[in-house]
């Protein structure tokens, strides 16, 4: 039998379990918390969970190629995540797009540093449902990711910018817990990602971008990274809150990126509070 796929977008109208799902043949099985949806029976689990969040937070930059001083400032964050279960196993596939823009000042109050970047991660997690605590789902897996970005120092001459580019494989753990408050069902979630191995671009200690890009002189500009020279991590804690027919997601993002390569030290510490919404897309076979 030829299958036909319907794509049901159930964002605001999807509802969470405070409303009993009014199911029909065409728009069934699309309510519930992300954890429930991802663990629904096999013939029902073709649902992917999409969240989009915007946030504002604090950032601390250090990049000794540009300046030996610490910089503090504000950072705008955008994060879009898709979580999609595998059809016939306990695996789930995750994609994360993260973008940020920041401006920072040094201790002297000079607002000299502007930063920005985009990060993409593609993850695969094994899902485990412990019997001792219904509603809890534990995930363990890995992410393959890449990011590009920049730090621009407005007062520097031949070293005005640091280009940030890297690829990495990260270990990842996550836990989701569904719980009730009254008749409303909430979902709390934590995810921690820990880069393990990767490659990154870096100028050599005193090398100018003129030498790299105009003259084509390369000197250890592609560096192997591991926790010893790039001890980084990202933590996301979120709470899904049912409000009317909408699911809001409130998150705290802790993004700690550090590198110490070519005798150049870099860190960007971000703490951001984010808010957004969750949508569920269902593909239903007739």
């Amino acid at each position: 039998m030829v299958s036909k796929f319907l794509l049901c977008v159930l964002a605001a109208a999807s509802g969470l379990p405070q409303h009993e799902p009014e199911t029909t043949e065409s728009d069934t099985i699309v309510s519930g918390t992300p954890s429930e949806l991802l663990t629904a029976p096999d013939d029902q689990n073709r649902i992917s969970v999409h969240s989009t969040m915007f946030g504002l937070g604090s950032v601390r930059h250090l990049d000794t190629y540009l300046s030996p001083l610490n910089y503090k400032g504000e950072q705008l964050e955008f994060l879009h995540e898709t979580l999609r279960p595998s059809r016939r196993s306990n695996l789930s596939i995750q994609t994360i797009w993260q973008a940020n823009l920041s401006q920072a000042s040094n201790e002297a109050g000079k607002r000299n540093l502007i930063g920005g970047g985009v990060t993409f991660d593609l993850g695969l997690h094994y899902n485990w449902h412990p019997q001792f605590l219904p509603g809890l789902r534990l995930m363990i897996g890995g992410l393959a990711g890449a990011d590009v970005g920049f730090l621009y120092h407005t007062r520097n001459g031949n070293n005005p910018v640091q280009a940030l580019a890297s690829m990495r494989l990260s270990a990842s753990i996550a836990a989701t817990y569904d719980f009730h408050i009254g008749k409303r069902r909430f979902a709390a979630r934590y995810q921690g990602d820990f880069p393990m191995i990767g490659l990154m671009f870096s100028p050599q200690y005193g090398q100018s971008y003129y030498e790299i890009f105009s003259l084509g002189h390369y000197d250890h500009n592609l560096v192997f990274t591991y926790p010893g020279n790039a001890p980084s991590m990202r933590h996301i804690v979120s709470l899904d809150i049912p409000i009317g027919h909408t699911t809001l997601r409130a998150s705290y993002l802790c993004d700690m990126r550090q590198t110490n390569v070519n005798s150049l030290r870099h860190h960007s510490y971000t703490h951001a509070f984010m808010i957004g919404w969750v949508r569920r897309l269902a593909r239903i076979r007739d």
Partner: peptide, 19 residues
């Protein structure tokens, strides 16, 4: 193993510069 290594390194290796 990687997690254990990462936790050890992360806790003890903050990349910073003398201020």
């Amino acid at each position: 193993v990687l997690f254990a290594t990462a936790c050890t390194l992360l806790l003890g290796s903050c990349v910073s510069e003398e201020q």
